[in-house]
């Protein structure tokens, strides 16, 4: 399959659920999933049917929701598509994709640990890296936690601004 065919397939088959846009480089695209409930179906189509590889997932904290990004690539044609879905606050949750992509196991745990996003259907959703002694409700990348416990740098920055 060529790059054009893959993009055409995505538009034809996922057009009603998603919208596709180009990034700042010609081989990097973004695919916005309108409803987070479709995420598993979208990922299954990209991974199983179109043969993509999942590079990694990223969480980005916003004011009203946590953005969950799935970086997918087609190495043979040199195409990279970042799938974006939004998990709304105050209790962000999204379907886990681990039954489609086993490699997503650890990164879903990491995003849960950082942003408190509950991945529904994950076989073992426990923090990946942090020590057991941390309180269970401590999510360091959450905007609310950042404001409550600023780092020394952030404090310095805040005083300078004032």
């Amino acid at each position: 399959m060529t790059k054009k065919e893959i993009l055409k397939n995505i538009e034809n088959n996922l057009g009603d659920k998603t919208s596709l846009g180009q990034g700042c480089k010609e081989n990097q695209y973004f695919l916005l999933v309108r409803d987070k409930r479709d995420i598993k179906e979208v990922m299954r189509y990209l991974f199983k049917d179109l043969g993509a590889r999942m590079n990694i997932m990223t969480g980005v904290d916003g004011r009203d929701s946590v953005e969950v990004l799935y970086h997918m690539s087609w190495d043979k044609v040199g195409l990279m598509v970042t799938v974006k879905a939004f998990a709304e606050k105050p209790f962000p949750s999204i379907d886990s994709v681990t039954d489609v992509i086993i490699g997503a196991k650890w990164i879903e745990r990491e995003i849960y640990e950082l942003f408190d996003v509950k991945f529904k259907g994950h076989p073992e959703l426990i923090p990946l890296l942090r020590s057991d002694t941390r309180p269970a409700d401590y999510f360091p990348f959450k905007r609310e936690v950042k404001e409550k416990h600023p780092t020394i740098r952030e404090k310095e920055k805040g005083t300078k601004e004032k």
Binding site: S73, D75, M80, A104
Partner: peptide, 23 residues
């Protein structure tokens, strides 16, 4: 493929990927 392995680990299993060539 399922575990999304990369580098010599994937190439040792016949997955022909290398970012220097692919991207």
């Amino acid at each position: 493929i399922d575990y999304c392995a990369t580098g010599p680990t994937a190439r040792g299993s016949g997955v022909d990927i290398d970012n220097r060539r692919d991207f």
